[in-house]
Amino acid sequence: MSEAGSASENGDWESLARAASLRGADGEDQVDLLRELLSFRLDESPYAIPVERVREIVRVRKITSVPKMPSWVLGVVALRGEIVQVVDLRMRLGIPSKSTSRQSRIIVLHGDDDRITGMLVDAVDQVLRVNEDAFQNAEVSTESGAVNELCVREGEFVSIVDVDRVLELRAD
């Protein structure tokens, strides 16, 4: 259902012009200042990744384990005809693994090239628009090195996860 084509793909003039004008009218000037992030939780702590790296969010489904994989790769799932590896973000960040709950979600990420990867998180929150000023370097280099920035949101620190770092293959 959600895959069905829409008029925008047909590229008719009206929708193109509309899209262009919308970007021009209210997007352009703010784009440089605002960053859009998808926030989610591991335990109760907030994390976020850039929205443009998110392809979709799906519920947890049967994960087929794959032999000889690093422990942080849980296995593979089928996603509308595609087979996708699922990374346990908890383990990747050095947080002890735990069983999935009703809130658990797999965030499907765009990797480099055309590849996609699933990332298991405890719960998905919302899309944040955060002003560039609210970001700061994480300063402390963690073991995984995957959290390189923090942003303040309603008095709480949100850890910004470097997606490329999470997906980077290191010799284990």
Partner: peptide, 27 residues
């Protein structure tokens, strides 16, 4: 047979995966 998407590009001994109706993903 479909290729496996994800950070690990080559899995020794695995050529890909396939979806079987009742059994989910099979390598």
């Amino acid at each position: 047979i479909k290729s496996i998407n994800g950070p690990i590009r080559e899995i020794a001994g695995i050529a890909g995966a396939t979806e079987l109706g009742d059994q989910g993903v099979v390598l």
